[in-house]
């Protein structure tokens, strides 16, 4: 399935990418992350959470929605 991957804050800077479409044939968030770590090795040692369709999910979650966001620690306010 085609996924719309969004990167925020520090992660958008290190990947030099704010959003991209990725073809994903695996099932879980952790498999998706393996794919992204191959593309952007620098992500592997960064601290972030994953949101699927704007909800934070664990890495065991099945990828079922098209919008996936990588969210580093928040720093609003």
């Amino acid at each position: 399935m085609k996924l719309n991957i969004k990167y925020f804050g520090l992660l958008a800077e290190v990947t030099q990418c704010a959003a991209e479409v990725i073809d994903f044939s695996g099932s879980s968030v952790s498999e998706l992350l393996e794919l992204l770590f191959e593309k952007y090795p620098i992500l592997e040692n960064k601290d972030f959470q994953v949101a699927q369709n704007q909800k934070i999910v664990s890495i065991d979650t099945l990828v079922s929605e098209h919008e996936i966001a990588l969210l580093p620690p928040f720093s609003g306010g």
Partner: peptide, 14 residues
């Protein structure tokens, strides 16, 4: 409210 904003809202400050 302020503590929840700091903890839960995906905002980034550079």
């Amino acid at each position: 409210i302020v503590e929840a904003i700091k903890a839960d809202v995906p905002v980034y400050g550079k």
